[in-house]
Simulated assay, not measured.
Amino acid sequence: MSRAFEFQFSSSRHVPTLKVLRASIEDFRYDRHAHTEYAFGVTLAGRQDFFSAGAYHRNPPGSVIFFNPEQPHDGESGGAQRLDYVMAYMAPEALATLFAEAAGNEHAGRLLSPHTLITDPVLRDAILALARLVREGIGSRIDQEDLLQQIAVRMVQRAGRYQPSLPVNRRPDRLLMRACDYIRDHLDQELSLERISAAANLSRYHFLRLFHAQFGMTPHQYVISYRIDAARGALEAGATPGEVALRYGFADHSHFNRRFKRIHGVTPFQYQQSLAH
C-alpha cells in the first residue's frame, strides 16, 4: 500500500541555492505560503489544483507551473489520480544574470511572469532535464548552468516581462513594504499586528484590509511563511531543528514540525536529512 504523500528534496552540488523537490501526493494540502525563490516545475501525473494570483488553477500533466518570488499559493491533488510533480527552486539573485543576458539588458531587474501555468514543451523538457541532473547527482556544473540558461531564455521569450528596479511609488505599496520589511527584520522576535501596522504607519483596520488585498494572505500567514523560509535556510546551514524552532519563535518542537510539514510536506529533520544525501 502506497503512502498518501511522499516528498524528496535534493540540493545541487554545483549551483548554489538550486534545489529540487520530487513529490507524490493524494491526501495532502499545502497551507497558503510563499517562497523567496523562483519556483518552477512540471506536473508528471494527476492534476495539481491551487489558488494563486487571485484565481484558482488546475495544472494538468506536462504543464509548467511558475511562481514568482513571494507569490502566495497553496496546492493539493485534484481529481482521482495521484499527483506526481517536480519543482525547482532558485534564489532571485542567482538567476538575475541569466535573465538579464536572455533579455539583452544588463540593467534589467528580475523577471516577473504574468502566467502561472505555461504550456511549452521546450521549457518543460529543460526543467525535467535539470531536475534529473540534480536529483541523481549526475553531470557537471556547466550541464546544469546550460539548462538554467535555456529556462531563462524561454521564460523571457514566452512568459515573462522585466521590471526595472525602481522605487515603489504608490503610497499604499510603500507602506505595505515597510510592514514586510519589518516582519522580515524581526522574524526572530515577538511580532504583533499592533507593531507591524505601526511600522507601516497604518491603523490596524486599514493595514489588515490592504495587506490581504495586496498579498492574498493574512499577516499571520505571511509571518509563518517567512519564519519557515528562514528556518529552512538555517537547517540547510546545519542548525538543529530544536535550535531553529527556538530561534524563530515556535512554541515547541512539535509546533515547528507541524508548521514546516504543512508547507514543505516533510518534517524539518526529514528535510535536513534528504539534502544530506
Rank of each mutant, 00 (worst) to 15 (best):
R170Y: 07
L191W: 01
L147E: 10
L210D: 15
F211G: 05
C180E: 11
N169K: 07
L202M: 14
Q221E: 15
D146M: 05
R170I: 09
R204V: 07
A237C: 03
F211Y: 05
I228C: 11
D229W: 00
L176D: 04
F207M: 03
P167L: 10
P172W: 02
Y205M: 09
A231H: 02
Y222W: 12
P167W: 09
Y182R: 06
A179I: 04
R209P: 10
A198Q: 04
A231Q: 02
A131H: 06
A152Q: 03
A129W: 00
R161H: 13
D181V: 14
Q150T: 09
V153G: 08
A213N: 10
R184P: 05
R170F: 14
L202R: 01
N169H: 11
F215W: 06
R195W: 04
L147S: 04
I138Y: 05
S165Q: 15
I142L: 13
I228S: 08
I151S: 09
L147P: 03
G238L: 01
V153L: 10
A213T: 09
C180R: 15
V223C: 11
H206C: 06
V223H: 03
F207R: 03
D185C: 10
H212T: 14
T218M: 02
Y182K: 03
V134N: 07
L191I: 03
D188M: 01
M177A: 13
A213S: 13
G238R: 04
R209A: 12
A199Q: 01
D185E: 15
I151L: 02
A200P: 08
G137V: 00
S197N: 05
G216Y: 01
L166Y: 06
R184V: 15
I224Q: 11
E194T: 05
D185L: 14
I183E: 08
R171T: 15
R158N: 07
F211K: 03
D146K: 00
Y162S: 13
P241V: 02
P219A: 02
H206I: 07
Y205K: 14
F207N: 11
A198E: 11
L148D: 00
E243L: 04
R171G: 11
S140D: 05
F207Y: 10
A239I: 00
D173H: 10
L175C: 04
R195Q: 05
M177C: 05
R158K: 12
L148E: 01
N201C: 10
G137C: 02
V153W: 08
H220T: 07
L148Q: 00
A131T: 10
Q144F: 00
L166V: 07
V168M: 14
G139T: 06
R232T: 13
S197L: 05
